[in-house]
Nucleic acid binder design. Structure first.
Lengths: 238, 238
DNA sequence: GCAAAATTTGCGGGTTCCCGCAAGACAAGA
DNA sequence: TCTTGTCTTGCGGGAACCCGCAAATTTTGC
């Protein structure tokens, strides 16, 4: 059994190495990669079916890398291992998990014990192991309470990239007014309308404010923006 | 001699602990804090004059903590130790350094040797030690080439928070038109005007696009936004 | 102290955004 | 089939944004 570790921080990498050795005596080789790009290459060459993946690496982040790995071999088991449980990351991972794939998502702050359980759960028992905190975010993100639907999320990204309503309409094959409707839903859900009595009226530019709120709440983050920007550019150049 | 380490990641914390022990034999006590808030408290209680500070911690980030520490004792020597050299962080640190204070800024990816040199340089020799990469960002940020002036940066933050032109005018005590002028400078510097021939005209909402570009280039980041939001709220509630 | 340079301000207009209103489109269910 | 609910689209208008132009003001350099 082979395990590939993709993690850019050397300290965390060697910690993971130890953890894998300790948790999985049946594992005979542990490979390491220091960013998403070399991670993809290593996974392809070594045919490793078990991967521990950091999100948020320079060069190429974990979500991108995981996507291409899963595209090539959808039965690869991936344990995501991240500092943050930003809604944007959780949503990003959920978007790329193939049908029936087994994966896990644990925070770097979890105990050694929990990490060990996650490693065995995902790699040996083929369970999906998701940390409580992360699970909480996932629920919130799906629960219609103040969670955004996929449609709303996509339009949020487009707006955040700086596209006009017209451009979004064209991209999404919708009428101008429909785009604006979705925007209004977004404004509602993100609770952007001003508290009456808190400063004069017209204090906020709703469009911008919605994005600001999304960023502050981590519904959106820089890495999601980068992803959006790349997609936009590639859509242009075809 | 006392050294206080403020760092939320336990692995990095113990690594730093070792590094301090090795680099500074004259240091008799090493204290640790796991976020900005407890860091401030520890600094106050222990009267430590030497601090190694992570930026980007939950609870209270390094810039905030450093500011209050320096406010109480401006001669404290602080070595910032961060994963990133985002322009927003570099600018954030530069904003709070008191006149004549000695500090350093090194990346977590530097070698043990360079870290050691930085520790001795800042704490013993009272030099300012700044990593090459960080220095590069600093230059770029100050060089008028495509760097933003303080005025432009501030307006960028206001826009990014979602304020209307009118609101910004009021806040900054300027006329509406002046705010719009500053915005135009911003659009120019961030190079937001579309490549003619790249899609139809009117593809971008300049206001939003400027913020998106700033985020993508790390001129602005989530932590700068949070800082702005706090300031905004406190300005409201007085 | 004065002239040049940079900033600030007002005006006017074209464009985009924000949104209420109401008429179609489509699916699920009685 | 008819109702009910959700989603989409068009129309219209008020507000905000973007910006060229030119006068007023402040800052800078000598």
């Amino acid at each position: 059994m082979k395990v590939l570790i993709v993690e850019d921080d050397p300290l965390h990498r060697s910690y993971l190495h130890e953890a894998v050795r300790a948790a999985l005596p049946e594992c005979d080789t542990v490979l390491e990669a220091e960013n998403g790009h070399t991670g993809e290459v290593q996974a392809r060459q070594s045919r490793a079916e078990h991967v521990v993946m950091d999100l948020q690496m320079s060069e190429r982040n974990g979500i991108e890398a995981a996507r291409t790995i899963w595209r090539e071999r959808p039965d690869t088991k991936i344990l995501f291992w991240s500092n943050y449980s930003d809604e944007a990351y959780v949503r990003g991972v959920a978007r790329i998990v193939p049908e029936g794939a087994t994966y896990g998502y644990v925070l770097k702050s979890t105990s050694d014990e929990r990490l060990k359980l996650a490693l065995r759960g995902v790699f040996i028992e083929s369970q999906c192991v998701i940390d409580r905190e992360v699970r909480g975010i996932q629920q919130k993100s799906l629960g219609t309470a103040h969670g955004l639907s996929d449609a709303e999320y996509e339009i949020l990204v487009d707006v955040a990239l700086g596209l006009t309503d017209k451009a979004i309409a064209q991209r999404k094959k919708l009428s101008l007014r429909s785009v604006q409707n979705r925007l209004q839903q977004l404004y509602e859900k993100l609770d952007v309308y001003e508290d009456p009595g808190n400063g004069p009226e017209g204090w906020y530019n709703l469009r911008m404010r919605a994005v600001a709120v999304a960023l502050l709440r981590k519904v959106l983050n820089a890495s999601a923006l980068e992803r959006g920007e790349r997609e936009l550019r590639s859509a242009r150049g075809n």
